[in-house]
């Protein structure tokens, strides 16, 4: 499937998980295509916000005013998101990062919720049930799912098997399990069998569409340009 065909399913008001961590391991082509398609009132679920140097990954969705709500653990890297939030144009809901991961894992793995001590005694516990298990107190955190997930892998095959590379798996594997329809953007689409079984990071049964993203050369150039622009390389 190509990205345009996958994107036709996305409607105004959709709830969408975006894999990646400050732009690393992010589905850059899919995000640009979401911006181009112009769908509005999106609820975006992303573990953190855009790369701190700006003009990269999901920032464009704010520039185009497409985000109704963001569910995240951290938004301090994206000033335009904060400005729109302060002005009441968009919402942000925070969860601790590890809690957010487990909420998505619960949604994808048939659990009714998770118990965690993270956030006890803070604003995070407001409105949540507390349970005491063997003398220790925990917060009950409920599953977090989405209609769509856009994830990013290194290579993918037509079964949907996805291989990750380096430190870029981050939120992608868990999001792949927690959405009704998961689109994996990859640097290279390969024949079935090329990704050896032990290198499959996300089994194909979690993935509904594999689409060609930036080639590996384009991928290298995109991050090198961003890091050079942000003066992050020695």
């Amino acid at each position: 499937m190509d990205l345009d065909a996958a994107m036709e399913k996305i409607h105004d008001g959709a709830t969408i998980m975006l894999g990646g961590f400050l732009g690393v391991g992010s589905p850059l082509r899919a995000i640009d295509k979401l911006a181009e398609r112009g769908v509005k009132d999106l609820t975006i679920i992303s573990i953190v916000n855009a790369h701190p140097a700006g003009n990269f990954d999901m920032e464009i969705l704010y520039r185009h005013k497409q985000v109704k709500k963001l569910i995240t653990s951290h938004s301090g890297t994206c000033q335009i998101a904060l400005d729109q939030w302060a002005a009441g144009e968009t919402e942000i809901e925070y969860f601790p990062m590890g809690t957010m991961v487990e909420k998505m894992r619960a949604a994808g793995s048939g659990l009714g919720g998770v118990l965690t001590a993270t956030g006890l005694g803070t604003l995070v516990e407001e409105g949540k049930r507390k349970l005491t298990i063997e003398g220790k107190e925990y917060l009950l955190e409920l599953p977090l799912k989405a209609e769509f997930a856009f994830i990013k892998g290194y290579r993918g095959d037509r079964f949907g098997n996805i291989q990750y590379r380096g430190v870029s798996a981050n939120s992608n594997p868990v999001m792949a399990t927690a959405a009704d329809y998961t689109v994996a953007e990859v640097n290279e689409i390969v024949e079935v069998g090329v990704i050896t079984p032990e290198c499959v990071g996300t089994p194909g049964i979690f993935v509904q569409a594999v689409v060609q993203g930036n080639t590996f050369e384009e991928h290298q150039r995109a991050y090198t340009d961003q890091w050079v622009r942000a003066k992050l390389l020695k």
């Binding site: 961590f21 701190p52 590890g98 990750y164 870029s168 981050n170 990071g201 290298q220 890091w227």
Partner: peptide, 23 residues
């Protein structure tokens, strides 16, 4: 392009390193 830290900055890995997902 696939090696960065929690600040979005490029990193290297040392011998003996391990990588994993957020879970």
């Amino acid at each position: 392009p696939d090696f960065a830290n929690a600040g979005g900055q490029p990193i290297t890995l040392l011998p003996g390193a391990a990588v994993f997902d957020l879970a």
